[in-house]
């Protein structure tokens, strides 16, 4: 357990010191969303209609940007081999890496999402549901992204490849994330969608680190 927090703190301090990666993902998120009113026109009705989808798609794309770095630096400088040698199960360490990734990309996006919602004329009643759906969905993104990031270690054009592998797997997330917000906008209960998102998180929490650890072992060994 101690190892877990040590690793999270290390990754966080590394991210804070370098700063650029997480900040760039966040900037990308904001910029992608701001492009849409320019592209589809500024009519409030149109924007309101598509706001939840755009925020979700932009979040997916922004998360993809930072994914290939998740294990790459550890792989390059040999820390990954040290992690394999520790008595702590690799799955736990992977979970720590995913948590650190979520804290540096998912959480900032979550916090800035309401502001983007305002930009997009989203109804205020939908904000809590948007936040809830992203709070459940972005950790799944980090967990699934970890699998992809571990699989492409050492591959050519790893950055593009990881997006190609992970994005199809995130489609269910997108569907339920968006439909939760849609339900809230139209005044229905979003409980069912949020429960399904929660179920996805619960399923990914043990399974994704297991697959990631398997991929890391074969990448290092």
């Amino acid at each position: 357990m101690k190892c877990f927090f040590v690793l999270v703190r290390r990754d966080l301090s590394l991210a804070l010191r370098q700063g650029s990666d997480a900040a760039m993902a966040l900037m990308f998120f904001v910029i992608v969303v701001t492009l849409f009113p320019l592209a589809v026109g500024p009519e409030p009705g149109v924007l309101e209609r598509i706001s939840s989808g755009i925020v979700w798609v932009a979040a997916l794309l922004a998360a993809m940007l930072s994914l290939d770095r998740m294990f790459q630096t550890d792989y390059d400088d040999g820390s990954l081999e040290l992690m394999l040698l520790t008595p702590v199960p690799l799955e736990v360490l992977v979970l720590a890496k995913c948590l650190a990734h979520w804290l540096t990309t998912g959480l900032p996006m979550l916090l800035i999402a309401p502001l983007l919602g305002v930009f997009m004329n989203m109804q205020t009643e939908a904000f809590p549901v948007l936040l809830a759906s992203m709070a459940l969905g972005t950790p799944v993104l980090s967990l699934l992204g970890g699998v992809g990031a571990a699989l492409v270690l050492g591959a050519r054009r790893a950055g593009t490849l990881v997006a190609l592998l992970v994005l199809p797997l995130t489609i269910p997330l997108l569907i339920f994330g968006v439909s939760a917000v849609e339900a809230a906008v139209t005044g229905q209960s979003a409980k069912a969608q949020l429960l399904i998102l929660g179920a996805m998180l619960m399923a990914c929490l043990p399974l994704a680190p297991w697959a990631t650890a398997a991929a890391l072992r074969q990448a290092a060994g």
Binding site: L151, V152, G154, A155, R156, A158, L161, L164, L165
Partner: peptide, 8 residues
């Protein structure tokens, strides 16, 4: 794509 992306 993944299978063909590695030198090894």
């Amino acid at each position: 794509a993944l299978v063909n992306a590695f030198d090894d």
